[in-house]
């Protein structure tokens, strides 16, 4: 899956903004948004928040978890825990990236927040690497990936499913003792098998 697509999915998360304008309710297909009253907070999808912010029509209120104290705590917990800690947001990395890019002026201590989130990401990535390694070594065909966010899962996608697929094939070949040489001739055969379509 293209990272743009993960970001696209994350952009539907709701976030609080403080508009600088007045407007009636907007009837989007996905539901009503607003009404907008200058300086009164209102919840909108992230893509809209960024759009309004770009037009200088609002301030964005960073989500509750986006503060130093809470993130420090999260980082410590992630370090202590052997498993993955549940993140405060399903798309924490993308939300942080977008807000830190487009609304830096609305976030206090933005640079520090950027660093801590990157730390958390790195800790989780190294856990991913070691658990992937264990999984492939044990030739396991099933693993839970609870509490991993879509963006994190996406980093495993280019490699892990294919590695498991190869192990699976070897095991299958071993158990069914398929003839190793195929004499069938076909234009459309196995060279294509297993390539995953549009991930």
């Amino acid at each position: 899956m293209n990272p743009d697509e993960v970001e696209f999915l994350a952009e539907k998360q709701l976030i609080s903004i403080i508009p600088t304008f007045n407007s009636n309710v907007i009837h989007l297909i996905s539901g009503d948004v607003g009404p907008f009253r200058a300086s009164l907070p209102v919840r909108v999808p992230l893509w809209m928040a960024i759009n309004l912010k770009q037009q200088r029509k609002c301030k964005i209120q960073p989500p509750d978890w986006m503060n130093i104290e809470q993130l420090e705590e999260l980082k410590e917990e992630e370090k202590r825990s052997k498993t993955f800690v549940k993140m405060p947001s399903e798309h924490y990395m993308i939300e942080a990236k977008l807000l830190l890019n487009y609304a830096t002026d609305d976030i206090s201590r933005a640079d520090e927040i950027r660093t801590i989130i990157k730390d958390i990401w790195d800790i989780r990535m190294s856990k991913i690497r070691s658990s992937v390694d264990t999984l492939v070594r044990n030739a396991g065909f099933y693993a839970t990936v609870d509490h991993l966010t879509l963006m994190e899962i996406n980093t495993m996608r280019p490699l892990l499913p294919h590695a498991l697929d190869q192990v699976y094939r070897m095991k299958k070949a071993q158990s069914t003792r398929l003839p190793t040489q195929s004499t069938t001739l076909s234009l459309l055969n196995s060279s294509h098998r297993g390539s995953s379509l549009s991930s």
């Binding site: 899962i153 499913p161 069938t184 076909s186 459309l188 098998r193 995953s196």
Partner: peptide
């Protein structure tokens, strides 16, 4: 050297055992 339908007798099929999240 090729029978009329030989080229499509073993067509590509999806890999149903591929791994997914």
């Amino acid at each position: 050297g090729l029978g009329p339908d030989d080229w499509k007798k073993d067509p590509v099929v999806p890999n149903m055992s591929s791994f997914v999240f």
